[in-house]
Design a binder for these strands. Structure first.
Length: 117
DNA sequence: CGTTTTTGACCTGCGC
DNA sequence: GCGCAGGTCAAAAACG
């Protein structure tokens, strides 16, 4: 696990993560379970917004997908969720979505999608 | 008992 | 070269 983390870090620096998707959703809570198991590994305060930003990683071994959850600086009711990378395995709850691997669970209000970089 | 969460400290990249 | 901002790690606690 330790070695894997090192390799991942090196890989991220040298190679491209893959792709990045940012969603801004209208939700009161930032705990959105998209079917994957997320392990929180960091919390940081952003100067741009008075609210902290949470960092999550996929709990599955061998899957290096990262997830960034941040509240909107102006509207606390909006949450910005950014996904980095692609999952190397199927979702543990893929059956929940039947046969369509939806990234956004039903009930979410998708406001916009853009590349933060 | 194994795993995740929490939190501050540490590291790195970028700008000046 | 230094400072800032952001991103990550790692130890202990909490949780099932």
């Amino acid at each position: 696990m330790d070695v894997i983390k090192r390799e991942e870090r090196k890989k991220n620096k040298n190679e491209d993560i893959g792709f990045r998707v940012a969603f801004r959703t209208k939700s009161a809570i930032e705990i959105m379970d998209d079917g994957f198991k997320w392990r929180k590994y960091g919390k940081k305060k952003v100067k741009n917004s008075p609210h902290p930003r949470n960092y999550y990683r996929c709990a599955s071994r061998g899957c290096f997908v990262k997830k960034r959850v941040e509240r909107d600086s102006t509207d606390a009711s909006f949450v910005i969720t950014t996904y980095d990378g692609t999952h190397n395995h199927q979702s543990p709850c893929v059956l929940y979505y039947n046969q369509t691997p939806l990234l956004v669970p039903t009930g979410w209000t998708l406001q916009a999608s853009h590349d933060p970089s």
